[in-house]
Design a protein around this nucleic acid. Sequence first.
DNA 1: AATGAATGAGACTTCATTCAT
DNA 2: AATGAATGAAGTCTCATTCAT
Lengths: 189, 189, 189, 189
Amino acid sequence: MPKIDDKRQAIFDATMELVSEHGFHRTSMSMIIRESKVSSGCIYHYFKGKDEIIVELYKDLKKKAARYYMSDFVPDEPTRLQLRKIVRNYFRFTAKNPHATAFKSQFISSPYMTAELEAETISYFSAFTEVFENAQRETLLKDLPKPVVGVFLIDVSNGLVNQASLGNLELTDELIDAVTECVWQAISA
Amino acid sequence: MPKIDDKRQAIFDATMELVSEHGFHRTSMSMIIRESKVSSGCIYHYFKGKDEIIVELYKDLKKKAARYYMSDFVPDEPTRLQLRKIVRNYFRFTAKNPHATAFKSQFISSPYMTAELEAETISYFSAFTEVFENAQRETLLKDLPKPVVGVFLIDVSNGLVNQASLGNLELTDELIDAVTECVWQAISA
Amino acid sequence: MPKIDDKRQAIFDATMELVSEHGFHRTSMSMIIRESKVSSGCIYHYFKGKDEIIVELYKDLKKKAARYYMSDFVPDEPTRLQLRKIVRNYFRFTAKNPHATAFKSQFISSPYMTAELEAETISYFSAFTEVFENAQRETLLKDLPKPVVGVFLIDVSNGLVNQASLGNLELTDELIDAVTECVWQAISA
Amino acid sequence: MPKIDDKRQAIFDATMELVSEHGFHRTSMSMIIRESKVSSGCIYHYFKGKDEIIVELYKDLKKKAARYYMSDFVPDEPTRLQLRKIVRNYFRFTAKNPHATAFKSQFISSPYMTAELEAETISYFSAFTEVFENAQRETLLKDLPKPVVGVFLIDVSNGLVNQASLGNLELTDELIDAVTECVWQAISA
DNA sequence: AATGAATGAGACTTCATTCAT
DNA sequence: AATGAATGAAGTCTCATTCAT
């Protein structure tokens, strides 16, 4: 991997960790600069400014997440199984990446999140979306608006990680599986 | 209502609206001052600083919410009914107060949220908590850690409002009832 | 003593102590108000503003000091003895009133000190001045400009108290007497 | 002299002049910024804040003074001569640098002055200290605590400059020599 | 005389960003 | 590409003082 990507990644890593710990407000460029070891002049070669770092980081995390969710996807499997795998992967990924999750859950509820951005990131999940459409066609899922299903996946898992980071919850594999089951009951027909 | 509470409330209203629209970062004291029509010097008679405004506003919203959730509570009713009412009230309140919800969902996923604060605000919900404990004793609810049940209420409803404010969803009463039903299936035994 | 003077004195006491501990900068009206227990509105009945408090306090301290220096003055004593008494009283007063001294030494080296003010305060010391003039006439003192003699009294004793308050020196009666002797040698013919 | 020292010096010069004229209170950062022609952001690259500027300036002046006092020091000369030179140099330096002196005398009687700082600055005067110790061993000086000797030098000379700046005194070379002689009589055995 | 909430100018400092090197 | 000193607008907050009660 060439140097250019190393720096991009260093900036992303620093930002993710800092925002996760201090929030968007209280995460300053100078903190990102210090943490990522990229000089203040240089950081502007990679990104137009602070907002661009944050938005690009969000997209990057989404892309990586999408890849992970589909990692054990088998095209010809029954939709039901495909769906369960995705749900389980979603919860696992979230639980295993608390900094990323903290960043994402702040991002989602912030004004950085726009309808256009949502539209763009949803395109990373095309395979994913297809499975859901199959599921709805096969009436495996309740007839709910798609964003509602998203909420049951995204916000529930983010909320779980928030609770874990507050020390209210231990995120064992068993718990993840139990919650996966609850969500499945919530959305399945 | 005396003048002193008017100012506190004006500050709260301005902050809630501004944070809901612009996020914590990008909501400056000067914006709050302009919007609330409380002078810059005076605002510091009411609150020690920006952080205190935000934290106190969160607590205030929580208190008002708690009152609302229990508004149609009937002591001798079956737990099952009590519970359904609370869940429905939760979703209704969230849906009817989008600024408050946007503020709260940003707050929850931000570093303002701490374990101590959570402990403090949970005390506003003591009646509420009792119903849940009854429900668990009567095995109306799955045997899940309490914070998980909280996530299904809080984060799902917040997420729904986020989606609505992005224009992806219309929060009709029917939809609220449908989601209430989904959540009920997720958490009920 | 009527109430009006109680408040004036409370304001003076608070100011003297606060300035002595925190300096002019860092001694705010709100600190004086808190410490003196005189309300913010009321304090402006007694003094036009912060500067007036400080200048009037300086004059007040000077008056009290002058009274003390002359406390054991005996008109017909030889000038030499009169002079020694004054010098000794000066050092004693300074040593026994460290807050007042800290205030005065800050005041003297600050821009609050003006030539007009000096002229005004010197008038409190007329008896005092007369002794010095006698002393010079009788050639008990070196032929030095009067302000130089003042420096040997005022600045040396202030400096001593500064050193004591820094913990570099213990101001025993013996030391005071020894320094009095040194000063006497410096200025006597 | 590289640029970096130019700015530091410009900040020091502006601060010294402004404090000397307006006192610590009433010397604002914006005045220092205006006078030194260093931008508001930049000044914080050189110093952590206002207090650091003031304390560092004091140390800087002390270092320069120490160098000056020892400028005509001759190792093998009799202690008596060495001492007279130092005393004379002290008075000359003070008299020739009224802004520095005004700054220093405000600093010394302010709460900026601490025992730790005194300990640090005294180390600049090690050669100086040695001469005094020799003098005491050779009984050229009275057996006084060292800080008392310091007071006769420092506070007397500062006081003289204060009087001069109030217009009460003209600091001619003759007067400086006369006062040097008085101080010598005060402290010599 | 007395109160203390209210004022708004101005304090110190941090910020995202630029630019000469 | 890279550096980090420099910028100045904007940030939060404190200040001395006023004024309605």
